[in-house]
Nucleic acid binder design. Structure first.
Lengths: 352, 352
DNA sequence: TCGTTTGCGGAAATCGTTTACCGTAATCGA
DNA sequence: TCGATTACGGTAAACGATTTCCGCAAACGA
């Protein structure tokens, strides 16, 4: 039967002798030199070239020199994709940034970035907004293969349990202890503690109605949360950097008869302050304003802003250190970085 | 000769019949499922599984469904390293950020990030400072395999010709036309144009000695640059976000008898303004202050800040679009985004 | 002089995708 | 009913590093 049998049991019933001739892609005019080229130029194997570059102590002096020469001559740089495929270590962490214009958040980011880069780890940035919340950003980053995530600005959204399919990706919020798993949030965050600090101070000053702009509400807390013998009115703001939104919120709070306003960033506080003054309310005599973060801005405003001082850089660095420790499977001791209240001119005794 | 011959010409003169038995690594309890597992579960080949996921239109309805089911069942997510190794497209661009606390820079970053993410491209962040200048950051990013770089804040340092060894990495500064290659800087940058705008305005107001804080000097311009019949004194500041440094610079300029100060960000302008007021100089009657970026802050200060309005978001988006076009080898038409001067209360006629 | 230990370096497998190439089955027109 | 298209899907070759085995040689002790 000379006709090719259509129902052959052999998948490759080939045409005579054209047997296992290895198929070669037409080499696409190789653009950048690979380790193989380096090895060729140095007349060593790729294994040795790799060792010479990644663990120099394992090879002899002469070989190291030859490889390094070849690298310099060819201008070789390692392909990071191939490297992380092979080592199955992406050397990447994600950063999820909220309220990007808050100078304090940026200080955290800067410190975290510096610490991570010092460990040879890259930072994949993602900016969260109302439309794309932190959790979505984190998931997207996980899909991009980061091996850790740091959240900057605001607290970790409780639904952000971050499971890559097979394996959990460690994550942490700046200024929060590690292992904060949603509902387990132990009340140790900057937000809670700073908030407690401010409220205590304001209540002590005699304020009984306090407005808060953009601070994350606590779990299950109502919009009006009673505190001791005072009331705190929480107003959410989608974009804390949107001055007009903050001004609107400020007006609402003023209409609600608050005698003090605490904003979730100094920039927002500046807007609130501006609005109060536009409403002809004397600060601090008729209304008190408290900022958040104690950025350089606090001292530039008139009156100078009372503000919650966050140890921004330290917390960013700490978060980064936690991540590198967690990624390496090492232990990490978390040191508390308590916020402080820096009292300046924008707060005074409560009236009414 | 039963003894194994040490000088055999065969590299693998093996022990009898243990011939080309393929060496297998003891499978390390495979943590995450790979495409092979998905393909196995869906009873298709890895090629089909890959096609079903990356180019669904190429496979039949039923296969797509089976693969998707398997993906869902196994919780598969693709390994990005393997993907970019295979496609040799990292789908990553680098962002080099200067003056991270300048709200305007952050707006640019935010817009650029949004546009890039919309194209499925990740953003590798690197923050430049005095110790690690932009050029170094860019090189580090190139070594990490980004296929483009966007510079945010400040102009592109002229020495930043960015050659990855084999191939040039496209790069662009926000608000600058593409292809700005060092000396080729055609005077179209925000910095130059905004600067010209401000100086013209101030000179028109009668100012003859103008101080500039943190603006990048033009090529070859001296520290004191004569303009028409006025003199501009440029002061470099390492960290524009360092309020104290800006205040010091402000004092120096005041001692130099300037009647107007322009700062390279609104935050810096706020610090300068604060310092002027601390020196009991009335703004704008004794000294004028101009900000940069026209962030929300400008309207929060007293007096409200005259500021150069930069089309920050548009320029960030535009830079991102340029990069994706350049990476795809497509043409890109650059639209000019001229800065405007927003005149408020912090500037007035020059005195002396 | 001859077996051991040590250590350097090479061959090849491997990481997990994508994709070029080709076989097969189904569809269609004549 | 039979050849020519077409569409689908499988095999296996890359991609470019790292790393595991081993072979070989030099150094060493007896």
């Amino acid at each position: 039967m000379p006709k090719p049998n259509p129902s052959s049991q052999f998948v490759r019933a080939d045409h005579g002798a054209a047997a296992p001739q290895p198929r070669r892609r037409i080499s696409h005019a190789k653009a950048t030199p690979g380790l193989a080229e380096v090895a060729g130029a140095a007349r060593v194997s790729t294994a040795s070239a790799s060792r010479a570059l990644t663990r120099p102590e394992l090879v002899s002096e002469s070989m190291r020199a030859r490889v390094l020469d070849a690298v310099a001559a060819l201008g070789y740089v390692a392909n990071p994709a191939a490297r992380s495929l092979s080592t199955r270590r992406p050397d990447l962490v994600g950063a999820v940034l909220r309220t990007p214009t808050d100078p304090i958040a940026l200080q955290m980011l800067e410190a975290a970035e510096g610490a991570l880069v010092a460990h040879g780890i890259g930072v994949l940035l993602r900016i969260a907004c109302a439309a794309v919340p932190e959790a979505a950003c984190a998931r997207a980053l996980a899909a991009r293969g980061v091996s850790g995530v740091v959240f900057i600005g605001g607290a970790i959204a409780p639904e952000t349990t971050l499971w890559s399919p097979g394996r959990a990706v460690p994550y942490i919020g700046c200024g929060q202890p590690p292992g904060l798993d949603g509902a387990a949030a132990a009340g140790e965050t900057f937000q809670r503690r700073g908030r407690a600090l401010v409220e205590q101070y304001l209540i002590q000053l005699g304020h009984r109605r306090i407005g808060a702009i953009g601070l994350r509400r606590e779990e299950g807390a109502a919009q009006k949360a009673p505190r001791q013998n005072a009331v705190v009115i929480d107003l959410e703001v989608d974009d804390l950097d949107d001055g007009d939104a903050v001004r609107t919120a400020t007006r609402l709070l003023v209409q609600s008869q608050v005698t003090a306003i605490v904003a979730a960033s100094d920039v927002a506080a500046a807007a609130a302050l501006g609005e109060c003054q536009a409403l002809s309310l004397a600060v601090p005599h008729q209304i008190s304003v408290v900022g958040w973060g104690d950025s350089g801005l606090a001292r530039c405003l008139h009156p100078m802003l009372t503000s919650v001082r966050i140890q921004a850089r330290a917390s960013g660095r700490s978060a980064a250190e936690y991540l590198v420790a967690a990624m390496a499977g090492r232990e990490f001791v978390w040191r508390d970085l308590p916020p402080k209240l820096v009292i300046r001119e924008s707060t005074g005794p409560g009236v009414d």
